[in-house]
Simulated assay, not measured.
Amino acid sequence: MPTGVAIRDAREQLFDAAERILLRDGPSALSSRSVTAEAGCAKGVLHRHFRDFDGFLAELVEDRVVRVERLGAELRDRAGTGTVADNLAEALTAVFETVALAIVSLVTYRDELRARIREQRPSGLPILTEAGTMLADYLAAEAEIGRIATASDPGLLARTLIGAGHLLFADRTAPRPELPAVRGLVTAVLGDALTS
């Protein structure tokens, strides 16, 4: 794109381009040049909006964390509707079909990025930690209305679902798991905790 041509929502356009690269090619393919080329804009656009490339990546991670937190609010609102297994299967799919696995790889791959993220989020892995909180909150809401056994541990169930979901979706080159497979995973993990 020639210099001087305005792009709408440049930050979001750059974030989306980085996500596509991460999902398609993995973290080793991510550079400021690859992101701007994917976004169809001049390299200087990235540097006008972000201090440096790791600053861009840190804001990308934060933007995607906010998306998971919004998904969590939507999931909590679904407590008492549909089935618990379907609600959780759809939430896991929404988290893992997007950029969650790529973010984990990216944070693991780049030391400077990990250090910057630790300044804001001192524990856990971004996206997966928030997804675990999202699932635990939903399971606690379902326990309050009796669809999950009150003796169950929503936090432990949520962490188990995140770990099992991570393994199910881990191979970005394989076909994505179908919803029935994700639902089967949820049902197996919840076991006797699932009352309806």
Rank of each mutant, 00 (worst) to 15 (best):
R70F: 13
A42H: 11
A149T: 06
F53T: 08
P177F: 04
R64A: 07
G55A: 04
A39K: 08
I145L: 14
L157A: 12
L101C: 01
E97D: 12
E74L: 12
V182L: 02
R76D: 08
D192N: 11
E12Q: 06
G191P: 03
R114P: 12
A58G: 11
S31I: 09
E142L: 10
G191K: 15
L185T: 08
D171E: 12
L46W: 01
I21M: 00
T81I: 03
R116V: 00
A174R: 06
R159V: 06
R51S: 11
A143N: 03
L71M: 14
A193P: 01
T133K: 10
L190Y: 03
R20V: 11
L101W: 02
A151K: 12
P180M: 06
G44S: 13
V35Q: 00
A91M: 06
A149P: 02
A29D: 01
L46G: 06
L106E: 02
Q13R: 09
D25K: 07
P177H: 05
T81S: 15
M134N: 08
S28A: 13
Q120N: 11
E119N: 08
A141R: 10
L139F: 07
T81Y: 06
R121M: 09
R20D: 04
G82C: 05
A29L: 00
L168N: 09
A18D: 00
A102Y: 05
A85R: 07
L92G: 07
L106N: 00
R183M: 03
T129G: 02
V104G: 15
T108H: 13
